[in-house]
């Protein structure tokens, strides 16, 4: 069994999907020779050729717009957006076209497109390189939105997303790309794509996170344990559709929930999750569901991003407030 990083897991996953299905294509800026600025597509053009790993002109709307046509021709484009902040030139194509074509054609046309977006902050980058746009896509019917948090999930989830007949916005926590390694056992059967997962069991409070915040959530639970607080952590993994059955089960047990994400709190995923928990678990709740997230400002200059981003202290602060309610 090999120990891999998230970058390697994604790379291996895309490779596997390309081997298994000749219709799978990779498209994006600098994805060819360079292997992408994060090297997620490293070596793929060399092995699969320029027809299947396409260095596109510098135009995101063009990438997604042509992906639509490719999909109509039976291909399965895996589009890379270089950084979160650069998805907006393609937003029109994604929201008005990719998301709606199946609906408009009454199911006759599918859009098996994956839009890979390195997202989140914490890498000391300049503006437009650290954003968390997930809610903008989760709010759009017709799109599915998932976020991986670790190398093994990266490996499986990207393959499952590529195999999915619906368009999938695939969010990759960029600061995790080359960080922690994990052991990949390819012989295991992966959990279905659109499911959440309890990653740490606990009894006092349910802590929900996805993408880059899963690591923070785990560290927070660890820290809380030293103070005798038992926290259950759930990696949401899928943001649209949400898989909340395990969350409801957990909250019915703990009576308390905190949702954490890097994205702005206002109208973020946390708002939806909190609302659904309240609707489903009202009589089990001991305190209001709390949200921890980025402030409602544009992403700040990187010298203060660590203060802006929800960290262990801010998560624990919410945990304490929930427990003290």
């Amino acid at each position: 069994m090999a120990k891999i990083t998230l970058a390697k897991g994604l790379n291996a996953g895309i490779r596997k999907a390309m081997e298994n299905d000749p219709k799978v294509l990779v498209m994006g800026e600098d994805v060819g020779k360079l292997g992408g600025v994060f090297r997620i597509t490293d070596g793929l053009q060399k092995d699969f050729g320029e027809d299947r790993v396409i260095d596109s002109p510098l135009a995101e709307s063009g990438i997604l717009g042509t992906a639509v046509g490719m999909a109509m021709r039976g291909y399965r484009p895996v589009c890379e957006i270089q950084f979160d902040g650069f998805v907006y030139p393609a937003y029109d194509q994604i929201v008005s076209q990719v998301a709606k074509i199946h609906f408009r054609s009454q199911g006759k046309v599918t859009m098996p497109i994956v839009v890979r977006i390195p997202f989140g902050g914490g890498i000391g980058a300049v503006e437009h390189h650290s954003e968390s746009p997930e809610a903008q896509f989760a709010h759009t019917p017709g799109l599915k939105v998932v976020a991986c948090s670790n190398p093994v999930d990266g490996y499986w989830m990207i393959q499952q997303a590529i195999a999915c007949d619906d368009p999938v916005i695939f969010l990759e926590p960029k600061r995790q790309y080359h960080a922690d390694k994990a052991e990949l056992d390819e012989s295991t059967t992966p959990q279905p794509l659109f499911t959440s997962r309890v990653v740490r069991e606990g009894s006092d409070l349910t802590l929900l996170a996805y993408g880059p915040m899963v690591k923070t959530a785990m560290a927070s639970a660890e820290a809380a344990a030293t103070e005798g607080k038992s926290i259950e952590v759930i990696d949401l993994r899928t943001l649209s559709p949400l898989d909340l059955a395990p969350v409801f089960a957990s909250v019915r047990k703990t009576g308390r929930a905190v949702v954490a994400h890097e994205a702005h709190v206002n109208l973020g995923m946390g708002a939806e999750v909190a609302s659904r928990i309240t609707e489903a678990c009202f009589y089990s709740l001991e305190s209001p569901v709390l949200r921890v997230g980025g402030f409602d400002t544009p992403y700040p200059p990187s010298r203060i991003e660590e203060q802006w981003l929800p960290d262990l202290d801010r998560v624990l602060d919410a945990v304490d407030r929930s427990l003290a309610f």
Binding site: N266, F295, D296, T297, P298, I304, W308
Partner: peptide
């Protein structure tokens, strides 16, 4: 160095109570 509390002041020309 930027001060994190300052960023709230630059979001809008007309501040919001929220």
């Amino acid at each position: 160095e930027p001060r994190v509390l300052d960023i709230f002041d630059y979001v809008y020309a007309e501040d919001t109570p929220e």
